[in-house]
């Protein structure tokens, strides 16, 4: 390695920054990709970008989760040109509630809870947050809550799919030499 002179803690920090940037970039790409995807049910989004947020959480912790989630929403909206539009507000509120729930779940039940559990919590939080803001700001009609069960059901399924994808990704990354140190730190926690 060419960086042998640098102390390993500093190297780890740089590595962390680089990977977080990479996660954000990937998340934005997925976010954009999903928005462009032709979809028979337009508002049912799988939320693929959350895979990266989950990966960040399990590799670098809670702070990383928030950084990836918020940055993804901001940059993603910027790219799609929806920044500060009603759609952006919905996206932001959904993202905030999702991240909040994921953090709570992780904080409370770690290490028992795996990526799938966190992901499902996040997906449910996402739709709930969106509907809440949609109700408060856009459609002040109680029947909007009749949509909630359908959204929740879809979120449950997409949350599991994302969680499984994140689980595989985390496993793969932790097996990679770049994360060797981290894997050792994590110890038996993640097997």
């Amino acid at each position: 390695m060419t960086c042998s002179a640098v102390n390993s803690a500093e190297l780890e920090q740089v590595r962390r920054r680089v990977f977080l940037a990479l996660f954000i970039a990937l998340a934005v790409a997925l976010h954009t990709f999903e928005a462009l995807l032709p979809n028979p049910l337009p508002w049912f989004r799988i939320g693929l970008a959350n895979i990266l947020a989950l990966t960040a959480l399990y590799i670098y912790g809670l702070r990383a989760l928030w950084i990836v989630s918020l940055a993804r929403i901001l940059v993603g909206s910027l790219i799609l040109g929806t920044l500060f539009s009603p759609g952006f507000l919905l996206s932001l509120s959904g993202g905030l509630l999702a991240t909040l729930l994921m953090s709570l779940g992780y904080r409370l039940w770690q290490p028992k809870i795996g990526p799938v559990g966190v992901s499902v919590l996040g997906a449910l939080g996402h739709v709930s947050g969106q509907l809440l803001i949609a109700w408060l700001l856009i459609i002040r009609h109680p029947s909007i809550w009749m949509l909630l069960p359908f959204f929740l059901l879809f979120a449950l399924i997409s949350g599991m799919v994302n969680g499984l994808a994140a689980d595989l990704l985390i496993k793969f990354l932790l097996g990679h030499p770049a994360f060797l140190r981290l894997r050792n730190l994590a110890g038996g926690n993640y097997s």
Binding site: W109, K112, I113, G114, V116, G117, V120, L156, D167, L168
Partner: peptide, 11 residues
């Protein structure tokens, strides 16, 4: 395999 015991309960 992929879900922890807690995940299964939670889901």
């Amino acid at each position: 395999q992929r879900l922890t015991r807690f995940d299964r309960k939670l889901v």
